[in-house]
């Protein structure tokens, strides 16, 4: 059995699975980092992911086109994020309450449209999912090729997004404005940045990423829609945002760590290590909490987070 664990196929399989499992987490984490950097905590993430998973799945089921499914997932993520923006940015409701509301609303809606569309068949319908895309030449490299270059197209995109989001936040005009309003919305307003509009845009970008992250689960990771398909990955992304100190690189590293634990528990099961499955299933969540405990005391929360912004109506 020990030999199994250290075999080459086990390790390449593990690395490949790690990259796969971490894809949705990293996508969602990147989205949440952008939103929180702008000063909005979007707790709607879990529901938006579930809704993206459902709408993407159904769109593909209807048309047979996987990319159309991804597009619909992104679009529905944007719509839900705009609703969040209306509640939390325009009306200035508590971001906690509005976000949880979105999650509950979107989860209910996801179940509703799924049931409306497919009814309650004994065998849930499936789609033909994305297949891994082997990059010519690179995928032939022993070990590495198998692990890194036979992945879903979405996984490659996700990995490309990590530096892109970093550059966006730290090297572009919009990034500077977003970071400023997350720290001090008043400062952003006084230099002519429209705080609420920019926050809405950031929420929409985040929403699209959440939607796609959800659709990855039903169109690549699995080929069907289940109620618990997201299984708390949205919350994990929130945790990873904190863990990564609102930095895309560090946050993605956290996502990778979660993906690794997730992949490890699957792989260990498959080689027949007889620890109860549920103990394994628990590990990623527990480790996430432990990781949070480790970083929370020195976390530098964006100072404008959770604060709705209004020009003050009081003269002096």
């Amino acid at each position: 059995m020990m030999a199994d664990i250290f075999s080459a196929s086990f390790i390449t399989g593990l690395i490949g699975a790690t990259l796969r499992m971490s894809t949705p987490i990293i996508l969602a984490t990147l989205g949440e980092i952008i939103t929180e950097r702008a000063g909005v905590l979007n707790l709607g993430i879990e529901g938006i992911m579930l809704f993206g998973a459902a709408s993407g799945f159904l769109a593909t089921l209807a048309t047979g086109n996987l990319w159309f499914g991804i597009l619909m997932a992104a679009l529905s993520g944007v719509l839900l994020a705009l609703l969040m923006s209306f509640l939390a940015v325009n009306l200035g409701l508590s971001q906690h309450v509005a976000g949880l509301g979105i999650t509950i609303f979107a989860s209910g809606l996801a179940m509703f449209i799924y049931r409306k569309a497919v009814g309650s068949p004994v065998v849930p319908p499936t789609v033909h999912p994305f297949s891994p895309l082997a990059i010519p030449f690179l995928s032939d490299i022993p070990f590495i090729g198998e692990s890194f270059f036979k992945q879903y197209f979405l996984t490659y995109i996700t990995w490309a997004l990590i530096p892109l989001v970093s550059i966006f936040l730290f090297r572009t005009r919009f990034g500077l404005r977003i970071r400023t309003m997350g720290q001090n919305p008043f400062a952003a307003d006084t230099v002519g940045v429209n705080v609420n509009r920019t926050r809405t845009i950031c929420l929409a970008i985040g929403g699209a990423l959440f939607g796609v992250a959800g659709a990855f689960l039903t169109l690549a990771h699995q080929n069907m829609f289940l109620i618990d398909v997201v299984g708390g990955r949205g919350w994990i992304a929130i945790a990873m945002t904190i863990f990564g100190n609102w930095n895309p690189l560090m946050g993605s590293l956290g996502g990778l760590m979660f993906g690794f634990l997730d992949a490890l528990q699957l792989r260990l099961q498959s080689v027949g290590i007889h620890l109860p499955i549920h103990v394994f299933l628990m590990i990623p969540y527990l480790m996430t909490i432990v990781a949070l405990v480790g970083v929370s005391r020195k976390a530098t929360v964006p100072a404008g987070l959770l604060k709705p912004y209004r020009r003050e109506e009081k003269g002096g």
């Binding site: 005009r173 919009f174 500077l176 404005r177 400023t180 400062a187 952003a188 230099v191 940045v193």
Partner: peptide, 8 residues
């Protein structure tokens, strides 16, 4: 901030 010029 606010007068950064181009995209980057």
């Amino acid at each position: 901030i606010g007068v950064e010029g181009g995209f980057f």
